[in-house]
Design a protein around this nucleic acid. Structure first.
Lengths: 367, 367
DNA sequence: TTGTAAGCGTTATCAG
DNA sequence: CTGATAACGCTTACAA
């Protein structure tokens, strides 16, 4: 391992002062073009790399930001992080990812540990306990942005998707297919799964479901709401609650599945009850997450613009770091319907099912 | 934002020298218990946080390591990173994740950029081009470990799973079920997908497939090997090559799917051809990746011990950082069979299929 | 046991 | 335009 080349080395080799080297390598105006060229050449030939540490110590900024990545929920945040990474890199910041990974104390504890990490700010993803994290951030004076739709109390600029409007899109699509008995499969947020906080997004998606029914003049039927226990455990084969519902003999012709990750088990349960998707039951999910394309049939779903959300988080965070004021409120992103096989038109398919309305065309986007 | 509290502040408040404060806060022996207590109390009350930067500048080590996370292949590396993060944290290191995320120049370029990042070493995951990365690491004198089974040339200590032995396990399991016409569904590594390098792991898994056939005295049938184009694109609904194969009228009663991520489309294709899994065709995958539990039926597969691999990578890297010698060779981890529904015993199922041998019991592990 | 002081590699502020 | 030089906050000889 060759010893590290420092500014002093370059300065000696180029026969100029260290200050000049620093200026030449940076974008300072007060250097003659000739010296700049020469210094740069020497620096390159010596294999000089600036020490980020020394620079950070001097300037007080690390040009690095952190993102705290949640423990549960199977990696929907991955595209968010990739996008954030890219956005940060574009403005010369690098991004560190800190998985929660079962850490005791959750995100707040991680922020606490960030005290020792050279970082200028943090993006917290999926944080139901914004109060705790906020306190930790204040204590170490660390700017923060949240990407989250679980917490009712917003103590950071918080980015999320329009859950209510998205859910409405989903259910309107089902209605446009002529479906009328539309079940809502929801995660049942119990005390044990506190990773999902107040379950705000579930409430909102439920409201969107009702919005769509109301607009179409379809009566809301409480019994069509199915809350599933242990909802984000993907090793589950079936949803007991859905099984119970189907066993009562209720007929459903569509299902809005409030999270894509629940779709795999839902499809298995339907199949086990002899129901075909999309012939007998049309399904729309929510998130446009990896699960949506792995299941069979592939899932029509509501896309959350994860990439945009990641980029915007970085943008807001950098503004905060630069001392600009950023409103503490929710920043919501528009969702869109992505059509796949789980809602192929019933009338085009073999099964001659009851079909009362003409499907009205809706403004959907092809996957 | 309160100005940052430094050692000097604490020293003043506690009425001792800075050196004493430093010693008291660290684990130095040469401090009286009384002063230590007092200093710590003062530090806490002032909200003192050490500056990682200053410390790094002084000591020359960051106590941070990086992991370069691949672009393709749908997040199988996630458990690796989580485990590595945890292992690093346990010894007081923190871990930064650097997604490749379409960066031009791939991992090598990322390593290059690491020159400006405060990190003591790097774990590169899934790097077919070890030569390029090696060169970059040398240039900036950065210790590195690879987790990878795609590259034939090993220029780092390289961690991987026992692909050949794992594949053998998979196929032996199929044979123990009485299956004899066992197709091998493989990724076709073309020039366009250079993320998968030499495709070493595919060769090894193929060898394991043949090992199992040989031991059982089953003739190898070239036509049962199916190479799929664009293999890691999960949006694909079907494998054209598998369709072609089935259309020729060849009868297969089992399939070894050389990567779990390919299973979803394979299942759809089989289903489209009227073949039931596991009644008509038993399937075993490889990786025990998220896809294995999302598909229907859930996939019997070969588990790669991702967590152990992540931990071990950290262990080796820290050794290298501490100047210890670590052999540049492959470090292989044992795999295991995880049984799920895709290989439920055919004879217990409805379909009365041809069945010649008693299934021999094998030492498998329940999921 | 404690304090003083010398750096670590930069950048910024001065004079020249 | 350029060169000394003083920080930045910490650890660690060395001295007391």
């Amino acid at each position: 391992m060759p010893r590290k080349v420092t500014l002093a080395d370059v300065s000696r080799a180029a026969e100029v002062g260290v200050a000049t080297v620093s200026r030449a390598l940076g974008d300072h105006p007060d250097v003659s073009e000739a010296t700049r060229q020469r210094v740069r050449a020497v620096a390159r030939s010596l294999g000089y790399r600036p020490s980020a540490t020394a620079r950070a110590l001097r300037t007080g900024e690390y040009r690095a930001i952190s993102v705290i990545v949640p423990d549960a929920g199977w990696g929907w945040w991955e595209p968010v992080v990739r996008a954030a990474f890219k956005a940060a890199a574009e403005v010369g910041y690098y991004l560190m990812a800190h998985p929660v990974a079962g850490t005791k104390g959750g995100a707040a504890a991680i922020v606490e540990a960030l005290a020792n990490v050279p970082t200028d700010g943090v993006i917290v993803i999926g944080v139901p306990d914004q109060d705790g994290v906020r306190e930790a951030c204040d204590r170490i004076a660390l700017p923060a942005i949240a990407i989250d739709d679980t917490s009712r109390t917003v103590r950071f600029p918080t980015i999320s998707a329009q859950n209510r409007e998205g859910a409405r899109l989903a259910v309107e699509h089902l209605i446009s297919l002529g479906r009328r008995s539309i079940a809502l499969l929801r995660p049942n947020i119990g005390v044990e799964t506190d990773n999902w906080g107040d379950g705000l997004f579930i409430d909102h998606r439920t409201l969107g479901y009702r919005d769509a029914l109301d607009s179409a003049g379809i009566a809301f039927d409480e019994s069509l709401i199915i809350d599933c226990t242990d909802p984000f455990n993907e090793t589950r084969k079936h949803w007991r609650e859905l099984e119970a519902e189907l066993s009562t003999g209720v007929r459903i012709d569509a299902m809005f599945c409030a999270a894509d990750t629940m779709a795999a088990a839902a499809l298995r349960t339907l199949r086990a009850h002899g129901l075909k998707v999309p012939e007998d039951v049309s399904i729309v999910g929510f998130d446009d997450e990896r699960a949506a394309i792995l299941v069979d049939p592939q899932l029509t779903t509501i896309r959350q613009p994860y990439e945009e959300m990641g980029c915007y988080a970085v943008e807001l965070l950098l503004r905060k770091i630069q001392g600009e004021h950023v409103d503490i409120r929710r920043y919501e992103f528009v969702t869109e319907l992505v059509r796949r096989s789980s809602t192929d038109e019933p009338e085009r398919l073999a099964k001659p099912e009851a079909q009362r309305n003409d499907p009205k065309p809706v403004g959907v986007q092809q996957a």
